[in-house]
Design a binder for these strands. Sequence first.
DNA 1: CTATAAGCGAGACGGTACGTCCCGTCTTAGA
DNA 2: TCTAAGACGGGACGTACCGTCTCGCTTATAG
Lengths: 210, 210, 210, 210
Amino acid sequence: MAPDDSCDATQSELSELSPKSADCRRRSDRCHRAILTAAAELLEEKGYGGISVEAIAARAGVGKQTIYRWWPCKASVVMEAYAERATQNLPLPDTGCVKTDLGELLGQLATVLGSTSTGRALAGLIAEAQTDPHVAQEFRNQMIGCRRSATQTLLQRGIERGELRPDLDLELAIDSLYGPIWYRLLLQHAPLNREFAIALVEQVVVGIGS
Amino acid sequence: MAPDDSCDATQSELSELSPKSADCRRRSDRCHRAILTAAAELLEEKGYGGISVEAIAARAGVGKQTIYRWWPCKASVVMEAYAERATQNLPLPDTGCVKTDLGELLGQLATVLGSTSTGRALAGLIAEAQTDPHVAQEFRNQMIGCRRSATQTLLQRGIERGELRPDLDLELAIDSLYGPIWYRLLLQHAPLNREFAIALVEQVVVGIGS
Amino acid sequence: MAPDDSCDATQSELSELSPKSADCRRRSDRCHRAILTAAAELLEEKGYGGISVEAIAARAGVGKQTIYRWWPCKASVVMEAYAERATQNLPLPDTGCVKTDLGELLGQLATVLGSTSTGRALAGLIAEAQTDPHVAQEFRNQMIGCRRSATQTLLQRGIERGELRPDLDLELAIDSLYGPIWYRLLLQHAPLNREFAIALVEQVVVGIGS
Amino acid sequence: MAPDDSCDATQSELSELSPKSADCRRRSDRCHRAILTAAAELLEEKGYGGISVEAIAARAGVGKQTIYRWWPCKASVVMEAYAERATQNLPLPDTGCVKTDLGELLGQLATVLGSTSTGRALAGLIAEAQTDPHVAQEFRNQMIGCRRSATQTLLQRGIERGELRPDLDLELAIDSLYGPIWYRLLLQHAPLNREFAIALVEQVVVGIGS
DNA sequence: CTATAAGCGAGACGGTACGTCCCGTCTTAGA
DNA sequence: TCTAAGACGGGACGTACCGTCTCGCTTATAG
């Protein structure tokens, strides 16, 4: 979650087309990296609740102000630290079978979330989001949106192929697929892994009715 | 909440052995009530993040230590304050139609969670549970367990009546029903209400496949 | 320092003339002793500042109320625990030489106060007396008064024998003898022992002038 | 008080080695002053026992941490607040008569200590010193040391002039002069004023012997 | 020879203050 | 000019004891 102009910044950085030396802001890449690395390390070590902005700054060898200059709060830093790894290797399979495709997409997510550190970090972010609507918004943008639209694509392909009902309520279907995964992450009442995701997909597609 | 349980347990255990061994000066019902009431009021007014143990104590006219004597943390107090209202009027309908029954059960939950104050309070508790495993455990016990077993009952009736597949994975089915509801509560990307719950039940039963 | 009627109680107990069975109060000697012993032990172990009424009660196996029933505060208990040992073996020598007599009296005090535990306990009581005038009063009565009057006796004998000036300001003389001893106890800037007391007496008698 | 000393010490030590190593964002003079003023005011109003670190912070309009950052405890703050006024106008008279000189020095002290507020404040510090050796050390340094060395100077002059015995035990003589004054401050068994101090000096010089 | 009122242990209670942690802002010296 | 370092006002934390209170048990007179 970048400060305010996150989207723009990301876009321009990604595009790399216009070096735009005219931009007089000179965010130090070194310290940007150091902060994100420190945040990720501390999360690994202490878990989301156990870290503070102060600790991140100390670990990164950076002044606290340098963090507050670019991010509004702890959650934002953590979010940025995890955004890439949570979404970068997002598969968009196209095997011709909607169950397989969805299984791959959800299975990858369940695997990532089930692996302790990333999962706990994202759970911590959702926790923070309950208090801070700004965090909630960013979380939906960064962590949720891309997967939901990917899923929507898969579902639409399924409809087109006749595998899925044409009158499908897409939003509802997507909630049915992701809800149980986050539910297990947050409640921890049962394991969260690829097998669960695949079984879930199967059930959602065929229904529980006889 | 643990306090009560433990007290009762101790009492009954002792009474089996030596009815005379008295806990003299046992917990004051007056202040127990006052604390829970204060907690509930403050929650209503400020939301979960806006209250502190100090504020609860002040509102209840109670020493802080009296809270810490009986509850390990803020979350526990709030949980006890909400446990009753969250679960007491838990319906266990038996209309002969599994969809109707589930719709009733989940519809009531969605309505409660969708109504701002209780929903936000429980979301706050889940947030706390991400940090404190003790809170997580209690939350599962108090808030989750009873609904899941009620649901299990309904599903088994449905299987017996032939409405549902006999080889159903009950745990998975229950996660499919509750996951999306909590997901919407926590992510707030879409409204959470009775209509959503009923549509969800319908979809889970018939599946999304064609 | 007994509760309120300390003097009366002490007197009647000491006089032992009227068993007065009419007094329906039945203070348990066992717990009275246990409390004083516990207080003395804890003082030895932790020092005056490190103990609490709660700790004394726990060590003595006694309810807190039982302490507050008979003493108004921690200081009173400690004072009673030390009153005897601080004053019981108070010598009243009469060698015919006022320097020797005073040296004996003050030397014994300096020795007692210089021995860590008792000295620190009494220093703790003086500290408490700075806050609580009731403690101050009792301390003067129990710890200070008897020594001052003993000293007065010795000084008067000295005057009668012509060893001391007949126009002596007794109060001032007594302050000159005891002041430096308590001063060293409380400030701890120099050792407090019998040698110091004896040198002090010598100097006070002959003066520092040439 | 330690804070200052330590800072200065650190500074000078560092400066000897590397003049450039800066403590950036050093201690705020404004709040340093505000805290000492607040402490002094509260002392005046409530007495030593009646004030708390919390109250000092509130009065000074300062966070509690800002106090704990620079002083280890309440006693240290109070000590610094009084150190100046207790020692700044320390007279070092030189009239040619040791009795007059000592009378002036001790008379001024007795007057200050006898005037309620300062005396009670210092008595409170001595009380605290009985519990906390660090406070004791500082008290000796700040409050006791300078007077003792001033007195030593006067006594040595007296010896040189032949007014006092050449074999005088200086330490003992100083204890004889100050002991009775602090004794009266702490025990409060008799008034503490200039007259007492002067009579004391007279007696210490000529002795009580005939 | 009760019975009854006290003393008693235990410890809950309303409070006060403690000393710590971290927040997010502000200030400063030095690169 | 920007950054590291970290001081600042503030708020909540969880703990320690204070002195008071209530409870049921025990016990030694008083009736």
